[in-house]
Simulated assay, not measured.
Amino acid sequence: MGDYMVCAKDLRIIWARDRRYWRWVKDTDDSDVAELLNVCWLKVSGKIEKPNLSPGTQYEVVLVAKMKTRAYGWDAPVNFKFSRPGGMDDWTINLENEFKDSKDQWKDIKLGEFTASENPGDIEFWLYKFGGKWKSGLVIKGVAVRPKS
């Protein structure tokens, strides 16, 4: 009943195989991370099938990422949508503010929280921004679902 991590390689990232837009690099722990080079159409999504969560426990969903020093295009909020048994939430998050004092450092960006219900079901999430400014400099390690501390 612990943590679930959807690594970057297991996320669905639009344009991820196109080297003009994304670059895959090895992190210091040898994991593959996705570095955003340049997109104006951002869509990252993932799914955890029927996770074994403890009913009644508060969980949080976090994006494990970092923002490069020379990142740009993040002054407008991006959208986050999160579906779990018993509901769906969506809101916006300003990633530029989240990384303001911690460029080039891995950070857990809290995307949302929920209480696990008795009936397990899939958890799905989407981080997206269609159109608008070109964006660069976000490096994604993955998305974690874990008990809230």
Results as ranks from 00 to 15, higher is better:
M1Q: 14
D3S: 14
M5E: 09
C7D: 13
C7M: 01
C7V: 12
A8F: 01
K9I: 02
K9E: 03
L11N: 00
R12K: 06
R12A: 06
I13Q: 05
W15M: 02
W15I: 02
D18V: 09
R20N: 03
R20Y: 08
R20I: 03
Y21K: 01
W22M: 02
R23V: 15
K26L: 15
D30F: 12
D30G: 12
S31P: 03
E35D: 09
L37Y: 10
W41T: 11
W41I: 04
L42R: 00
K43C: 01
K43G: 00
K43I: 00
V44A: 04
S45T: 01
S45H: 01
G46S: 00
I48L: 07
I48W: 01
E49T: 14
K50D: 07
L53M: 06
L53N: 00
L53V: 04
S54D: 13
S54C: 14
G56F: 07
T57H: 15
Y59I: 03
E60H: 08
E60M: 02
V61E: 11
V61M: 10
V64L: 14
A65D: 05
A65K: 01
K66Y: 05
K66C: 00
M67V: 02
T69H: 15
R70V: 12
R70L: 15
A71R: 10
A71M: 08
A71C: 11
A71L: 14
Y72L: 10
W74I: 02
W74H: 00
W74M: 05
A76L: 14
A76T: 08
N79F: 05
F80H: 13
K81M: 07
K81L: 07
S83I: 09
R84D: 03
G87R: 10
G87F: 13
M88F: 14
D89F: 05
D89V: 06
D90M: 08
T92Q: 07
T92Y: 03
I93W: 04
I93A: 00
N94Y: 08
E96K: 04
N97K: 13
N97P: 06
F99C: 02
K100H: 15
S102D: 11
S102I: 02
K103R: 12
D104I: 07
D104Y: 09
Q105E: 08
W106A: 03
K107P: 10
D108I: 05
D108F: 08
D108E: 11
D108Q: 14
I109T: 12
K110Q: 04
K110W: 01
L111P: 13
L111G: 09
T115Q: 06
A116G: 05
A116L: 11
A116Q: 11
N119R: 11
D122P: 12
D122V: 10
I123L: 11
E124R: 01
L127G: 02
K129M: 08
K129Q: 15
F130Y: 14
K133F: 08
W134S: 13
W134D: 10
K135D: 01
K135A: 03
G137Y: 03
L138Y: 11
V139G: 03
V139C: 11
I140R: 00
I140N: 02
K141L: 12
G142W: 02
G142C: 04
A144S: 15
V145Q: 04
V145N: 05
K148V: 04
K148L: 14
K148M: 14
